[in-house]
C-alpha cells in the first residue's frame, strides 16, 4: 500500500516535470488552420517537411473559425505557426492611425510584416506565392450574354442580382459590402451572408446570381463561374504567408529555414488545383499535400 503511494507520487511528479517542459517550448510545434482548405494543405506541407528534416513533433489544429481567433491563439502560445493573408492587417487589429488602407499588394504585405512583428512579436514571412482574396464571380453564361468582364460592368444589372457572401464581408468596414457599393456605385438585390460553401450551393440551386468568391476557390472552376476583374481596384490584396511566433523561430532555426523554403513556391493556379483535389474530389488534405511535395522533389 505504502509502496504504491510512493510510486504514484513519483510518477505524478515526473509527469508534472515533463508537462512543464512541454509548456515552456518542448519539441512539439502546433500549427493552426482556419476552416477553409488552403491553410490546411499548407499546414500539412509544413508538418511533413518539419517531421522529415527535424526531430520535432508537429500537431495541427484545424477548423479554427476565423483569422482573429488564430491570431489570439498564437498570441497565447497555443499555436506557433499559421497561414495568414496580408489583408488581415486591416482587420481591426491596429488603430486607424497605425495602419493605412491600400490595395497595393506590396505595401499591404510590408505593413503586415512590420505591425505584427511590433505588436504581436510574430514573423510574417514573404508570400507563399498565391493570393486568396475576395473577388466577385457570376455565372459564365450570364456574363457572356451581357458582355460582363469587369466589376463595373455589373452596374446596370446589380439591382436584379441576388448576392451571396460570407457574413463577414457584409460588415467589413474598409473592404466590405458597404464600402464596395460606395466604391462601385451600385447595390445588389438582397445581399445575404452565409457559410462560404453554401454560396456555391445557392448558385447551383439558382437561388443566387453573384457571389464573393475567394480567388482560389475550386468551385469557380467546377461551377464554371466567371471571376470579374476588379477594375476600380477595390479589394485589398490577400497574399498568403506563413506566420510564426518569434520565440519559437529563435529556438528552432531549422523550422525557420523550412518555412522560408516554401516562400514564393505555390502560385494561385497550383493552389486552386490542390484545393480542387480536396474539396471537389474529396481527397485527404494530407495526401494531397504530400503528393505535391513529392512531385516538387521537396520530399522523398
Amino acid at each position: 500500500m505504502k509502496k504504491k503511494l510512493i510510486l504514484g507520487s513519483i510518477l505524478s511528479a515526473a509527469m508534472l516535470v515533463t508537462s512543464a517542459c512541454g509548456g515552456g517550448g518542448s519539441d512539439e510545434i502546433t500549427i493552426g488552420a482556419q476552416t477553409y482548405t488552403d491553410p490546411k494543405i499548407i499546414a500539412h506541407m509544413v508538418e511533413a517537411l518539419v517531421e522529415e528534416q527535424t526531430d520535432h513533433e508537429v500537431k495541427i489544429i484545424k477548423d479554427i473559425s476565423a483569422s482573429p481567433q488564430i491570431i489570439s491563439a498564437m498570441e497565447q502560445g497555443e499555436i506557433q505557426i499559421a497561414t495568414l493573408y496580408s489583408g488581415e492587417v486591416y482587420n481591426n487589429h491596429f488603430g486607424k492611425d497605425e495602419v493605412e488602407f491600400t490595395t497595393d499588394p506590396q505595401k499591404t504585405l510590408e505593413q503586415a510584416q512590420k505591425l505584427f512583428n511590433e505588436k504581436y512579436d510574430f514573423t510574417w514571412f514573404d508570400s507563399l506565392g498565391f493570393q486568396n482574396k475576395y473577388t466577385i464571380a457570376i455565372k459564365r453564361d450570364f456574363a457572356e450574354k451581357n458582355n460582363i468582364t469587369k466589376m463595373s460592368d455589373l452596374a446596370p444589372f446589380a439591382d436584379q442580382l441576388r448576392l451571396g457572401t460570407d457574413s463577414t464581408w457584409l460588415e467589413r468596414p474598409n473592404d466590405g459590402y458597404r464600402a464596395f457599393s460606395k466604391h462601385y456605385g451600385f447595390e445588389f438585390k438582397d445581399p445575404k451572408g452565409m457559410e462560404v460553401q453554401l454560396m456555391y450551393t445557392g448558385v447551383e440551386n439558382n437561388e443566387l446570381d453573384v457571389v464573393t468568391a475567394y480567388s482560389v476557390d475550386p468551385q469557380i472552376i467546377q461551377l464554371d463561374l466567371k471571376m470579374l476583374e476588379d477594375d476600380k481596384a477595390f479589394f485589398p490584396p490577400f497574399s498568403a504567408s506563413l506566420v510564426a511566433r518569434n520565440d519559437m523561430l529563435e529556438e528552432y532555426p531549422d523550422v525557420k529555414k523550412i518555412i522560408e523554403s516554401l516562400t514564393d513556391t505555390i502560385d494561385e493556379e497550383t493552389m486552386t488545383k490542390l484545393i480542387y483535389e480536396v474539396d471537389i474530389n474529396k481527397r485527404d488534405e494530407k495526401e494531397v499535400a504530400l503528393e505535391y511535395l513529392k512531385e516538387q522533389g521537396l520530399l522523398k
Binding site: P68, N92, G193, L198
Partner: peptide, 18 residues
C-alpha cells in the same frame, strides 16, 4: 450560417473580422 440573416449575421461578421 445558411443565409437567412438575423442577429447571427452580426455575430459571425464580428468573429470574422475581429
Amino acid at each position: 450560417v445558411i443565409g437567412a440573416g438575423g442577429l447571427g449575421g452580426l455575430i459571425l461578421s464580428g468573429l470574422g473580422f475581429n
